[in-house]
Design a protein around this nucleic acid. Structure first.
Lengths: 241, 241
DNA sequence: CGAACCCTTGATGGCGATCAAACGCCGTGG
DNA sequence: CCACGGCGTTTGATCGCCATCAAGGGTTCG
């Protein structure tokens, strides 16, 4: 199950913006030193404060990144495949700031931190790709922080729905990637209030049935949620850190 | 006033982590192509949405970076000298996400974005420094977002005071860098509530007189504010993006 | 069938925003 | 010198968003 990445998975990983431009031989070297591993759901992969020993690439499944403090917990990000995560901790050689937990059964490529740091130093194209990934991830977080400070919860939800729709097939119908409890935490609200917010969005062109969401009146939703300046970069095929 | 950086300023800028490790000749080239410019207070340097045409290095003065949306404004960061800012926008060649405004009279080194991007491509040490800066800046933002989601306003204030003290000379006495109105916005609260929060912190070992802050009982303040896992990296001489 | 678990709905309470007004500080101009 | 106005800060009163507490319905799984 580990030791060498199985052939079938490689193309999808190699096509990630992070690995796309680098030297083929170096990429092989990275993959040869990495492990593809399967994890059951609800398993903690690592905790905040631990030394960052692997760059993670989610190949299949779903991951929650959360932070805690003062007895509380909040989910910082929900990682969907195929995406790398915790690049920043690996690059800066610092402890994780977030805890990672599988939500669904997941397969993850584990790239030893020392290995990826070494190859980054050797391969300029990879270093440049890393730099760009970090810059885009930084900008995503600026948007997230502004979102949290400027909008109230139902507006954040509305924007999340618009964003999630755009990220998916694009037209007006999609499913929430994870349970509503988790979504609530991601949006900085309680499950109870997420439930209320979802029903209140019915007045703004959104209908929900279980995890199925349909945007019936995009103009109305946009008028309410004001996606404004906070829209995500739309680089083709891009995945976050 | 511009064209070539005045000799007196160079050492301090060259010592920034961003420029410290790079090739001397390349650094000269960057500085030769840049402009050191003075700005009056309360002047908008650029607005969110504009094309990012300069990397900025604050040499002297004070800058506010703010974001807006839905009729509201919030300050995202207060930049103190000597520090570069908006590296991420320049690296990713995307529009600014934030608006920059001088608070005090300021002198800023303006490095043309195309120039710095070109030299980054040519100089591996600079690229690596940029990568590290972005990674650390990313982690700062993770902390800021977790702070906003996990703590209530008086706790955020308490942590800000601890952090600001640590960043300064270190022991228990310092001045707020900018007016309280601005600080309130940075912390995601109103000036009224900042005022109340400051007086409530008297019960936790803090005394305030105007802009002068004194931490009389650090243990009590830490017990209240729980700096926990969110503590900033303490790399010597490090400055944020 | 029962036990979790998730989601929903309702009732209550607290944190913080908003509204309003007074105080201190400071630069201007009479 | 003092009067005046502007601005930032403080203090008080009220309101609204959202968290918390509580309970009920639906689904899944042992």
């Amino acid at each position: 199950m580990n030791g060498i990445v199985r052939i079938g998975e490689k193309p999808e990983i190699a096509r990630l913006p992070l690995f796309r431009e680098m030297d083929d031989a170096k990429r092989e070297r990275v993959f040869a030193g990495s492990f593809l591993q399967a994890f059951p759901p609800r398993l903690t992969l690592f905790e905040a404060g631990q030394y960052a020993d692997f760059l993670h690439v989610l190949v299949d499944g779903l991951i929650e990144l959360s932070a805690s403090g003062g007895g509380r917990d909040t989910t910082m990000r929900i990682v969907e495949p195929v995406t790398s995560f915790i690049l920043a901790a690996v690059v800066s050689d610092q402890p994780y700031l977030m805890t990672a937990r599988t939500i669904e059964p997941s397969r993850i490529l584990l790239v030893p931190a020392a290995l990826i740091r070494e190859v980054i130093r050797q391969d300029t194209a990879l270093m440049q790709a890393t730099m760009r990934e970090l810059a885009l991830a930084y900008r995503d977080l600026v948007r997230a922080l502004a979102d949290m400070k400027l909008r109230q919860s139902a507006e954040r939800l509305g924007n999340y729905l618009l964003q999630q729709d755009a990220r998916g097939s694009g037209q007006a119908r999609f499913e929430l990637p994870a349970g509503k409890r988790l979504l609530a935490s991601l949006l900085g609200m309680t499950p109870e209030n997420l439930s209320r917010a979802l029903s209140s969005l019915a007045q703004h062109g959104v209908s929900v049935c279980g995890a199925r969401v349909q945007i019936n009146d995009r103009a109305a939703l946009e008028a309410y949620a004001r996606p404004d300046l906070l829209q995500a970069e739309a680089e083709v095929g891009r995945k976050q850190v």
